[in-house]
Each structure stands twice: as C-alpha cells, then as structure tokens.
C-alpha cells in the first residue's frame, strides 16, 4: 500500500485512522533511519515516534510536487539529529577524538567474500560505532550529505568531519574483520 494524496490530506485534517495508517506505512523506512543513528532499539523507537509526530505537525507544509516519502525521511533525519543534540554526552563526544581505536584494517583479510552478512548484523555493527563518527557516516553514506553540509548541521569543521568519517570507516572494517574472524574461529 502506498501513501496517497488523500491519505496525506486526511492526516492533515487530523483523522486518527489515517494517521495510524500513515504510521504503519512509514514505520519500516523510518526505522531504518532511526536504528542507524540510535545506540539501541529503545532509543530508535523514541527517535521514530518523535520524528513521526513532527511529520504530522508539519504535514501542512508539505509541497505536493515533491515525493512525500523523501520529505518525510528528511524530516526524520532532522528530528533524529535534534534528539541527538539534546543529549549532552553526544555533544561532548563531538569534541572528543580518543574514542576510535588506532587500528588499521587488515587488507589481506578475505573472509568477507565467504560470508554473507545479514541486514540485522550490519545494523548492529553500525549501532555499535562511536559518536560522532556514526552520525557522520550515516549522513555521508546513507543520506548523501557533503562534508560541508555535515559540518554545518553538526557545528563542526569540514576537516573534523572528514577525519571522523575516515576513522569510523576504518573502525567498521575492523569490526567486520573481527566479526568474520570470530565466525571463522567458530
């Protein structure tokens, strides 16, 4: 089932049934976004609910000429970022550079080709990444933001954003290698 213009109108009019229907339709795609940014499942649900309420509140501002889903995902990302910014520890982490393990991934490690990762496994790995690299990775890889935009969004310098992204990518690779190493060991 798709999100139709009628459904959007009904949601704008405050029809509870339509809003419920909209929630069900947007749940999975929104969860994909929220889960990546959150540190656990419960946080992801909180982010999702906050974002959905924001969508309903702002639905009258939606431009019908644009795809609704894209608009809704953008609102979701902004809402999640707002929620993250409210967290004091997250803001402190933005300044810290010590969270990344100073490791270099093993280029010779080839277990990746022999094992198919599940989406749940990937998501869990993403969740475990330290901030702010995780957020920057999400924004850059999945949302397609440039370093300039990320820097503006998070209030950091572009260089800082690049550095974090490089570090977090390395870390993710190492985590994957560890994951595969453990798999092979089993």
């Amino acid at each position: 089932m798709k999100i139709t213009k009628e459904l959007i109108k009904e949601c704008a009019n405050g029809n509870q049934q339509s809003i419920s229907q909209m929630y069900k339709l947007l749940f999975s795609p929104m969860m994909r976004i929220c889960y990546r940014y959150a540190s656990c499942k419960d946080d992801a649900i909180i982010y999702l609910n906050n974002a959905f309420i924001r969508i309903i509140e702002k639905i009258s501002l939606y431009d019908e000429n644009q795809p609704f889903e894209a608009w809704a995902y953008k609102v979701t990302v902004n809402s999640v970022l707002n929620d993250l910014k409210k967290d004091k520890t997250w803001r402190q982490k933005m300044e810290a550079l010590e969270d990344y393990e100073n490791l270099i991934p093993d280029k010779q490690f080839d277990a990746f080709q022999n094992h198919e990762l599940t989406s749940q496994e990937i998501m869990d790995l993403l969740q475990k990444l330290p901030e702010p690299g995780k957020t920057i990775l999400n924004l850059q890889v999945f949302e397609g933001y440039s370093h300039k935009e990320i820097a503006q969004l998070l209030g950091i310098s572009e260089e800082n954003s690049r550095w974090h992204l490089h570090k977090v990518k390395n870390m993710l690779k190492i985590q994957l290698q560890t994951f595969f190493f453990n798999l092979e060991a089993i």
Partner: peptide
C-alpha cells in the same frame, strides 16, 4: 543494500 533489507 544491507540496510535497505533491514525490517523491524
């Protein structure tokens, strides 16, 4: 692609 497959 893996993230797209993710279903909660």
């Amino acid at each position: 692609s893996k993230v797209e497959e993710f279903e909660f």
